[in-house]
Design a protein around this nucleic acid. Sequence first.
DNA 1: CGTTTATAAATGTGATCACAAATTGGCGTG
DNA 2: CACGCCAATTTGTGATCACATTTATAAACG
Lengths: 240, 240
Amino acid sequence: MAEPLSGRAGVPATHGRGERVTGDEVPPRGSVRGSVERAVREALLTGRFVPGRAVTLRGLAQELGVSPMPVREAVRALSAGNALDIRPNGRIQVPTMTRPRLEEILKARLLLEPELAGLAAPGLNRADAAGLAEIDDRIDASLDGGDAETYMRLNHAFHFRIYRAAGSQVLLPLVETLWLQFAPFMRTVYGRVGTSALVDHHKEAVDAIRAADARALRDAVAADIRCGMDLLVEGFPAPG
Amino acid sequence: MAEPLSGRAGVPATHGRGERVTGDEVPPRGSVRGSVERAVREALLTGRFVPGRAVTLRGLAQELGVSPMPVREAVRALSAGNALDIRPNGRIQVPTMTRPRLEEILKARLLLEPELAGLAAPGLNRADAAGLAEIDDRIDASLDGGDAETYMRLNHAFHFRIYRAAGSQVLLPLVETLWLQFAPFMRTVYGRVGTSALVDHHKEAVDAIRAADARALRDAVAADIRCGMDLLVEGFPAPG
DNA sequence: CGTTTATAAATGTGATCACAAATTGGCGTG
DNA sequence: CACGCCAATTTGTGATCACATTTATAAACG
């Protein structure tokens, strides 16, 4: 059994009521919850959490070597953004995808992400273009190797390195919630039809950044989203 | 001191370890957290929570007559959508507004809400138009009376009665997070400059619904957002 | 062998406690 | 009167417990 989440198990992480460990260094404020939330986000974004998978507080806590309490808060925060689904009976699971939901996510992405890329354009320089080009090379390698998990991590890194340059405090979090929602389903499609059919527009985006052409960057991102999401819509169990 | 939040205080709401009350009916699953979250959302949307106001877990719990635990989860869920701000020291407060943040919220609203209104248009009928017209009448009355809190509640009801008709599972939650973010600041501006300068485009929206004109509804919502938000930008402490 | 029922395990929820960091208030000193 | 220092309070965090509900498992019966 492979460890689906990073986390040094076996460390009881005694705090509060447990016996005190005087010599140990104290963890920063809210670090346990933060690390749990980060771990779950990463698992969702890379597709290690399959849609429909049950997520239990005690199970997650044990995997990460923490108590159920910070897991509760992290799960609550993620479910607030529809990254996790809390069923009517209280059980937690990775949301399953539906056709209308996927189409709505596509619509929202096309509304927000090109705009965000356009805002980011002025803040991107040659170094960013070079870094993005390097990420894109590794993306191509992961696609050749059929490593869907690495591809998804790098694709996320590529997009958000662009978006982050916009210095946005509002749009960026909205886009993050969208990625958390479609990423798990994306992974299942890649597992079914493979990653060979994937065509992206990353090179156009890098060229646009090199040319400092905000309009071209906008269009490249829009085209990239359309290609990637169309593959998901086509790969849907109930095609139209 | 007025009670800022509804909640029957004095009820210890014993559950779990406390002495059991055998004859009482059992509350539904997660109802306490849900009611807390709903109360805080309402307080934010109507401006009863002023930007910068400190929100403490124990204080909120006492106001609502519940234990701090469900408050923790509700606050966590709301802060995940930037409806509440958790400072680096862990303290919780209603977020303060900044100029760039407000402009970003305006941009996001203009991207999402007209689109959502356009999607909702086919699902709106005569009864909806009549209901919206009645809400708008009450809005006018609250504006004449200078009742900012009632105005904000009704304005929210007006917009979301339209948006809800889109049957959206993705766009609607995104828009809700935006409203939670700007509502508290909106209230402070109304408290400073009053509500007399407010001009909305609600009647155009109702007419568009009556005419089943999706395009006109889209434009009316966009114009309404622009007017309302421009007032906020103008009313900003550091104008440009 | 399949269906039903009883038992056991698992799970989310709410409550309470201990602790550390931060804030606040008061007091003394310069 | 201003500034710094120390104690008391407040506050978020993490841990553990009890409970109701649900799910899973096993047993019993036809």
